[in-house]
Amino acid sequence: MNAVLKKVNSVFMSLVAAVFLSPIVLMILTSFKPEAEVLNPASVVPKHWTLANYQYLLGWSEEAPFGRWLLNSFFIATSVTLLVVLFSSMAAFAITRLRVPGGNFVLGIIVASMMVPGQLFLVPLYLMLSRLHWLDTPAALIIPATAGGFGVFMLSQFMRAIPEAIEEAALIDGCTPMGLYLNVSLPLCAPALATLGIFTFVGSWNDFLGPLVFMDSVRNYTLPVGIALYQSSYYTEYGLTLATSVLATSPLVLVFMAFQRQIVESMSSTGLKD
């Protein structure tokens, strides 16, 4: 690409980013407005800045404080992410690189399973977790989450995109399957692994139905679910809802930044960075 085109591209992408960002800026600004002011589209910037919404959220402690929920969320989302990335990459590696017999058929089943609406699993899953005595423990949110087909499908497609020549070269060098997995496939898929990690983390963090249905004690809720208890079921307190969302999402943004750094580092180490 020539330099002018590059410049135009950068400007355009920045514009797009600004458009995407603006509702979020609006959300953050609105969370600092008093409730009487929130729905006024004429003034985007608060006339009276207030921390009342945040004070209300952070200052109210019942069975569980904010910190406990943050801890739960963090523990659950991290565990789910690690397990999903590990299990999915192993399975994808077995299917695409080790060419396990019937592997493509297995992948077909996995993809097909994604087409069944998950809402119907709720009842059987609840009964199963109840028999396992996992209800009201983090296991109920962690272990079943590793069964999703998204990660296996995604990593299979990414591994297929790796030129076979690279793998063959490694095999000629006498690489074992484990060596191939650890030293060739994983590093080459690092951007995909990090992307899957982000998706899994965000999905687990924002899961609403799971914690509500599988957890019985408020102490065991995750942050977005626990913090949502402050909102009325009947009406929307806009300032409060948006402040809630800012609080529940900001840890995610931190984690995303860390992951992103990881992508960049992993690429420079594999020599793929341009």
């Binding site: 299990f87 077995a94 296996v152």
Partner: peptide
Amino acid sequence: QRRSAAGLFFLAPYAFSFIAFILLPIIVS
């Protein structure tokens, strides 16, 4: 053969979870 055996080993953890938490509920539904 060795590659297939290794493949099964790599597939096992996910397969186990899949059968328990996806396939079983699917059969129920």
